[in-house]
Design a protein around this nucleic acid. Sequence first.
DNA 1: GCATATAGAGACAGACCTGTCTCACCACCA
DNA 2: TGGTGGTGAGACAGGTCTGTCTCTATATGC
Lengths: 196, 196
Amino acid sequence: MPAMTEPAKIDKRQHIIETAYGLFKRIGFHATGIDRIIAEANVAKMTMYRHFPSKDDLMVEVLAYRAERFDRQLDRLTEQAATPDRKISTIFDCYGRWFHSADFHGCLFAHALAEFGDPAHPVFQAAAGQKNGLKRRMRLILEEKMSAADADSASAALLMLIEGATLMARMGQPDAAIRHARKAAMAILATREKQQ
Amino acid sequence: MPAMTEPAKIDKRQHIIETAYGLFKRIGFHATGIDRIIAEANVAKMTMYRHFPSKDDLMVEVLAYRAERFDRQLDRLTEQAATPDRKISTIFDCYGRWFHSADFHGCLFAHALAEFGDPAHPVFQAAAGQKNGLKRRMRLILEEKMSAADADSASAALLMLIEGATLMARMGQPDAAIRHARKAAMAILATREKQQ
DNA sequence: GCATATAGAGACAGACCTGTCTCACCACCA
DNA sequence: TGGTGGTGAGACAGGTCTGTCTCTATATGC
């Protein structure tokens, strides 16, 4: 075909990452075979292996891509919010929308941690890095309104609520998950309010 | 060998379940092969397939065995506690000890949910059943001291904290996980205190 | 003693896994 | 025009997966 119909070629690599992302999310890391990825991406096997030396590398790149997209989204949303409380609330909004989206399949990073138990494995580290990054983000937000120790404790609690809510949403209760998580988050933040 | 040295034969089936449990926990469901299970259990392949028609069945039975052991442990611990708050605190104690145990590898049920995304899959259902059971247990405890609606909301929040804390412990911070989870739990329960 | 049930050992089938390799094709550029 | 680099298609290797099968050995109950 002529060059005009080949804009997808601009980034075959990115196309593979996004296809693999969809499969890992829906089916799992171990359960998704290379053959299926290349079939779904309409790509030759050698094309994939030229961009990614191994499946492990591909998984790490998929996680990195997803983490960056997530971070950019939260950057954009939280910079519009005025107060720490509003920033946190915006994050919960974001999760609530995600829980109700059509292709919600739970947290890819949590699944990666579940499938790769070895802390030395690159996939484990990539996934743990995203979780720690989210906690750090919330801690920095909370330090605007409370002591560092309280911010550390509260951000850990918020992260736990978010992880637990994601699990609950995955078990078929997205409404209850986000509602109860938000209520609990407000209760936690309220106890640290006067510390300002 | 003579009959005296064969008491293990009393329940080959149970021995297979416990061996598989250890492997699934450490390595994962998909990553653990049948061959490895029977090798570790010192059992012939046909012996395993005689007791469990398929690997799926074995996984479900392993989850059921683990869920029952967990329930019995919590039954024993919470019946010794006098008040609802003490019962909840005892559950957190239990999780804290678990986080610090030598062979802690995260929650098998959460891992099962991560690896089997289809809600119709028996493994998914077995895992979701355990989570819902834990939430129900805490809800019943909390209904002694608060309204049904508050107990529902608070038990959901406690479940989320527990799940999130388990994830955090798995990422190498068991101390912070249980400490912050407990503190957050107390804050959540405190806001529902006067509702009694 | 004999029947029945349970188990061990391991070959085997058929599918699927990751990863390598070859060959042909085509777009682009000098 | 001829070289270069990315790509498609698919064979292939070597291993592992689940699950079935056969044959043998042993233990228990009648």
